[in-house]
Write a protein that binds this DNA or RNA. Sequence first.
DNA 1: TGTAGTTTCGTGTGCGCACACGCAAATATA
DNA 2: TATATTTGCGTGTGCGCACACGAAACTACA
Lengths: 343, 343
Amino acid sequence: MITISDIATKANVSAGTVDRVLHNRGGVSEKTAERVRKIVKDNNFKINAVASSLANKKSRTIAVLIPDYSETNTFWKDTRLGVEKALEEFLKFGVKLEVFVFQQFDASSYEEEFQKLIESNPDGAIIAPTFRNETAKHIPKIEANKIPYIFINIDLDGFKNISFLGQQSYKSGYLAGKLMHVSLGMPAVIAVIQTKLNVENNQALSRRIQGFSDYFVKKEIPLELKMVNIDDVLDAKMVKNTLNLELSKINGLSGLFVPSSRASVFVDALNSDLLNILEVVGFDGTEQNLNSLKDDRISFIISQQSFNQGYNAIKLMVDFLIEKKLPTPKMYSPIEILTKENI
Amino acid sequence: MITISDIATKANVSAGTVDRVLHNRGGVSEKTAERVRKIVKDNNFKINAVASSLANKKSRTIAVLIPDYSETNTFWKDTRLGVEKALEEFLKFGVKLEVFVFQQFDASSYEEEFQKLIESNPDGAIIAPTFRNETAKHIPKIEANKIPYIFINIDLDGFKNISFLGQQSYKSGYLAGKLMHVSLGMPAVIAVIQTKLNVENNQALSRRIQGFSDYFVKKEIPLELKMVNIDDVLDAKMVKNTLNLELSKINGLSGLFVPSSRASVFVDALNSDLLNILEVVGFDGTEQNLNSLKDDRISFIISQQSFNQGYNAIKLMVDFLIEKKLPTPKMYSPIEILTKENI
DNA sequence: TGTAGTTTCGTGTGCGCACACGCAAATATA
DNA sequence: TATATTTGCGTGTGCGCACACGAAACTACA
């Protein structure tokens, strides 16, 4: 194992100087600094996190800003679990966590929690930037404090986040197209269920729809896509009525594509005659969706391994804070196929 | 944070004595030992893992015994990579690795490397127990040395391995059945390619075949399964001749099920007329299989995340050796579906 | 040339623990 | 009682790093 003083020896300086370079503490001539940096790089030196955290009594706090989860909307639960698993692992390195949760569809709640996050003055932040404008409004404050931040799940651009972790929406939609295709055969008449709850997510959702549709175009498979709008997914009665009514109007309907994570909500609302003939493809392995998979009400779910997303976000940030390891700007989660037989 | 010397002060002894008590090193009178233990307990003192692992220069060596990989058989490559990734991570905790590779189909090479492993006298061992009899012959020696060991990939029973990491063969076969079914429709005539290279693996392979077949039985889908035996997969010309000849004899053939990791070998050997009509389902995301997926020669691959298997095996062993954490006896890898669109 | 200020760097200390060394007291042996 | 042996314990050192302190070396200016 190569140590700081090894580097110091090779560079003909003292350990203190290497330390200054590693931490950009200044007070080192550019000439020596460059020499040290080169040797550090050539030898692939990494700060020993164990020794570092022992010497460094200062604990690092990472703030996490994500939506809350409820009984009916557990999408963010796995992320939370991943975050907490990571905490457990890094606790001994003096890493602390502060989780701020907001109401997923409430911009003012987002702003409120964002404000709290800023006031807590963390060493790093993990943010699910659910609302673009509000994000743009508050991000400058954490940039002013030179707090590094990572975006998770939603890939806003135009920001200086050190990384993004999430799924490639288009590709996952394309894959959904394939799965729908194999379970359906051709030709296909497919309904796409849209809701208008989340403004920012819409971008991701429409990319999924685009990918889905493009699959059929590319394979030259005749496809009829019917858009069905459901205004309020929280109103079960309304969902049931609208959904069944709208779907029954569609001739030869054979598939249901739900680009959001709410597939289970819709299959639960389906009348049994529809349920029996429809192949359903949805997204995200929430508890509800998994249950619907088990009961054969959903054919395929495409998942993005949210647990790992939460875990990896923390891990990336820790590596960045302690070992100064620059993360890759985009970390795309594997696009996982879930079906009754492999959950 | 309460430290060893805090305890020492309270107990009116030196830090060294506390250390002796904590590690049961002996050389402490029962009277003082008891006093120290009480204070340790009253103050809920826990050894600081960070400082401990920094001071503890004693390195633990973990020996790994797995098959080698070659250009044509890369199944074990990912496992190796996972193992090495884990090494990188645990290096700072003083974990060392010694990898012994044997020829996958050569029992004497297995024995030879097993013998070397024993002579290296590691602190723990990860073993892919490819040959049952030879395993039974050598395991007692490492048990005599009280070396804990983990089985990976092949689940031999009747041994005292502290854990097994691998796939549930039956379930993965069952899933293969479903994937074949959705890509084929019904009814189906499917050829199963068998080879007789690896004796032990045969158990896993026949479980996969059983699961595959059971899927169709359970779903009451008419199915004709035709077994095709290929003796020597290494002889490309022979493979090509036998395979095409045998398959062309089968009326209405529409699917090819390859329960081993060699799917790519067979699709490469297929005549184009066969290739065009057959849906192929195979196992394990080797480079060759992934390439065949990309080229649409294989429809689905079921993978067992070998990388994670290698990584987790090391991680489990490290936790066991350092933190004395008992692993779960069976750790089944997720059954992953790979297709052209999600690799 | 002399002095003050600045830049650039080396040294020393401590984080909490593991472990080797060796001394003193207690006990055994002659 | 003198000496040898064992038992019980304190001390010191180092793991790799962070950071404070202060000393050269260099610069600026009178």
